[in-house]
Amino acid sequence: MTRHHPDQAMLLDYASGAASEAESLLVATHLTYCPRCRSEVDELECLGGTLLDSIEPSLPAPSSCDEVLDRLGREPRPTSRPVPPQVLPQFQGLPRPIQRLLAASDRVPAWRRVMAGLDVLDLPARPPEGAGSMVRLMRLQPGVAVPQHTHRGEEFTLVLAGGFSDDTGHYQVGDIASCDGSISHRPAADLGEPCVSLVVTTGPVRLASPIGRLASLFVRV
């Protein structure tokens, strides 16, 4: 059962279609784990449908329906089920919204080492606006902590496996931790299994300690 959810504004942006690619990925992935937010998005989409009912109609071209039927006549009978994405074996446990993104990428995504116990994998989603924005997977080995840092923008971390704790709480599979410039934190993976998470940031990470700042010259966090 997830305990940390996206805020309602983000769910509304997702349902209305205004959310960025990265935010949509974050929300769609959270929905995979969270029946409560799924039902909330269902309600918001129902609101979209209700508004569609009340819109002032705009007439289609006179031959419009014939054109569509004509195109239908020429295409093979479609399969209605979504086809599972084809991904490398190491990505098979990931939720499908992330798998689809990996499958659509034209290069083979690979983990890269940031520091001992911390690897990241950049995802090909278009990140939200802002310098230093990114969308990536992060893998922390059991018990490893990321150096104390803060953010210039906002950061959302969605746990996909394992769990982690920081100054704001404990996060497990499906939970979203959100952080902004007002929070300086030191996320540490739970003991047991590695913690894998989806991370969306809208601004660069700033390491808090002098040693951390020095380290940032050497590691691309």
Partner: peptide
């Protein structure tokens, strides 16, 4: 509309996702 504007298809929940946590 979103797909027409973007490179990638919109990220969507997949109801058949093996990772899906079912509702009570």
């Amino acid at each position: 509309r979103i797909d027409s504007l973007r490179r990638e298809r919109r990220a969507e929940l997949d109801p058949e996702d093996p990772s899906l946590v079912p509702a009570a």
